[in-house]
Simulated assay, not measured.
Amino acid sequence: MSSPNQYFVLIVPACAALLGVAMIYCWSRLRDHRYLLWIASGYIATAIPMGIHSLMPNEQLARWTLPLSSMYLLGVWTMANGVALRFGGRAHAAWAWPIMLITLGLLLYFSRVDDDLWLRLQILNSGLALLVALPAKSILYGRTPTLPLKTLLRASYLTVLLYAFMRVAILATVIPKEVQPELTRSGFWLLMLATNMLISIWLALAILTSTAMSIVQSLDHERSRDPLTRLLNRRAFFEQVQKRLDLYGHSGWAVLTCDLDHFKLVNDTWGHAAGDRALKEFGALLARTVRQDDLAARFGGEEFVLLIRSASLHTAVLVAERLRSSVMNLHIPATAHTLTASFGVVQLSGNGDINQAIEQADRLLYEAKHAGRNRVVWKAS
């Protein structure tokens, strides 16, 4: 007969299964986040044998060792692989399969040939700890510059890894070889379940929180980008300009406005698809040219604005001239048109206003247009 306590401890595997179901639901809505499906599968795969073990007396453990241990091992590796995918790495399946097969082979021997529950606990938990350790390099040293809350995720993973190896050490030193007659009713089993629940909830919250932050970051990125060229839009440009000026001051900047020459001719002669390709190519050229602290934006139509770090007006003019020369080398498929661009360049003064600088650069741009196009006109702000 099962005791009420045994049913009570089912709360832990039930919580793990619910976390897995929640992640599957999130994955169904966010198919790009494939790691959620891996982690969810790991939660569910480990919850099932944990629940069965909680209801099973010791005398039946040996008979069910292989199927339940297989689910534990596969679930832990699946979860480790999911966390590794979150960091852009992997859990090294080439090592995982030998670990699982060796672990299951030893478990088979000590359940069917020499029934030893204490050794089976050591073997299974050692195998689980090794599987948890497989993605350690990817997670700890992987290059994930855009991953939100990566420090929290790494700390959560290290906690899981530390707990996995501590559990092996505790089993070897604290738990006597003469295991209590009813392992699944022992204090050790209850403590292990409670610890598993806390760590599982923590890891799940860290993963789901970082996923939510990624989505917010992605939405904010989309909101701030021109859909055609992927450069900043007007609103985002001014937001980023203010951040740059607040951080570095107003001096040492130049404003460049640029406009593709005879762009209406491209649309009228070869169609709007050709015009879109021209804008994409020009936007890609600007993106390749700007440096980390520089900004490039599409203000609308064929009009673009850049804010660049420049110690002098001469340096900014050289950048504009390099861009002007590069534009003529752009190839627009299905057209015989050679693109050119005109530029207005203003050096931002120490107390200059960015809006006034853009207006002045625009006036210089129109001077370049009236002077024959495909040229750079400049003036100190």
Results as ranks from 00 to 15, higher is better:
I201R: 03
S69G: 01
L131N: 02
I358D: 07
L107H: 05
A236R: 06
F165C: 05
L158R: 10
Q292R: 14
N81H: 15
S70Q: 02
S126T: 15
Y25C: 08
I215N: 00
S325P: 00
V132F: 04
L66D: 04
D294L: 08
R322C: 09
L205N: 06
Q180A: 15
T209M: 13
A169I: 12
G105C: 01
A80W: 02
M192V: 07
R375K: 15
G42Q: 04
R29C: 13
I44P: 07
G20L: 10
G350L: 04
L228F: 02
E303Y: 08
H331R: 14
R230Q: 14
D226Y: 02
L68N: 04
F87E: 00
I52A: 14
H221P: 00
Y25H: 13
R143S: 14
T335I: 07
G249A: 10
G283S: 07
A336R: 11
G105V: 01
T338C: 12
A206I: 07
L161I: 04
I332P: 08
A96Q: 07
A16W: 07
S218D: 13
D294G: 07
P333S: 09
L37W: 02
R154V: 08
P4C: 09
G105F: 00
Y109C: 06
L104S: 00
L339N: 12
S70K: 03
L128V: 04
I102H: 00
G127E: 01
D353P: 05
I207P: 01
L36D: 01
E59D: 15
L318F: 05
S3T: 14
Q217V: 02
W270L: 12
L68D: 06
R234F: 06
M192C: 11
V216S: 08
H272L: 11
R185Q: 15
A169V: 12
A296Q: 03
P49C: 08
L128I: 11
A96S: 08
L191P: 00
W38N: 00
E302Q: 12
L85R: 14
V174A: 11
S126I: 10
T340E: 10
S54T: 05
P13L: 08
T144K: 04
E178F: 06
V12C: 10
G20Q: 09
T257L: 13
K177M: 12
R86G: 00
P67T: 01
G75S: 02
T289K: 09
W95L: 13
K264R: 14
P176A: 08
G142F: 00
A62S: 15
G252I: 01
L147W: 04
F188W: 15
R375Y: 03
R277I: 00
K369H: 10
A361G: 07
L231S: 06
A212F: 12
A236K: 09
F110V: 05
T46H: 03
F237T: 03
A84H: 01
Q240K: 12
A274F: 12
R185S: 14
D294T: 02
I308F: 01
A311K: 13
G89V: 01
F282C: 08
P4S: 14
L330I: 13
L130R: 04
V346S: 03
P135R: 11
R324W: 11
A94G: 05
R235K: 12
A22P: 00
L231M: 12
I39P: 01
L203M: 15
W270V: 08
I123F: 07
R244C: 08
R324Y: 11
L55D: 04
Y366W: 10
I44D: 06
L265R: 13
R291I: 02
I139S: 01
I24F: 15
V174E: 07
D220N: 13
W189D: 08
I44S: 07
